[in-house]
Amino acid sequence: MAASEVKRSGGAPAHDSAPRRPVRALLAPDRYRGFGVWFGFVVVFLYAPIVTLVVYSFNDGDMIGMWRGVSLRWYQATLADGSVRKALANTLIVALFATLIAVSVATAAAVAIVRGAGRFERLSERLIALPLAIPEIVLAIATLMLFALIDLGSSITTLVLAHAVFCTPFAFMPIRTALAQISVSMEEAARDLYCTPAECFRLVTLPLLAPGIVAGAMLSLVMSIDDFITSYILSGPGNTTVPVYIFSMIRQGVTPQINALSSLLFGLSLLLVAGFWFSSRRS
């Protein structure tokens, strides 16, 4: 700063009459002072608990608030636990099958809704969004009653079906967006070049829709894996999922093992969110 100042004043000043006053940049009309800082605070607020959790999952000590050095012992203990492994397997099976159902249902519906504009299509779109408008607890106990009434009991299958219901709107949104971006003339071009409707779907619509479908699948997987309420109400003793297992652990008291299991679950979600991110960018 000082050096360049000296250099500049070395030459003859061109306009010595005009005082060199630093011009303060105008705040653009659509900006508000402090919003950026506020954004920073909120991000810290959102991440602080999760980061704390992950950091403490590597704590060697038994106490939550006491740092005793880095270790993987809680992860080892967690993964060695048979019931945790069972819960993890259940979680993944339920998520995979629920997603399979949700994505198929959502894709068929998206094609019908985006390409048609009738009253029935609009009504169906509302129906798909309905799971978002009802508290999960209400939906879960309603489903429980229905299953009890028709004597279905609790099994992995009933859990898969219940998960598929609330996964569908999440699978639907990115698929719908992707489909709306595929110009109708793309499909018309295919028909024009001698495709039957089925060939048109298989050779043109589906490949163009693929990133949207993958994005929808990722969201659906995350929703299912992270679901607690529905699983808690509907899962029986044999088919506990990870969140339900964590809940029972918390009720028994806070231990570092919960940190490890929670961090694992968080890592899994993060992985899927990353998958969603990349596939939705491609579409």
Binding site: P49, I50, T52, F228, P243, L265, F266
Partner: peptide, 14 residues
Amino acid sequence: WTDLLVRIYAWMII
């Protein structure tokens, strides 16, 4: 996109 339970539990630690 993180499990509700994990998020709440994290607050207990804090």
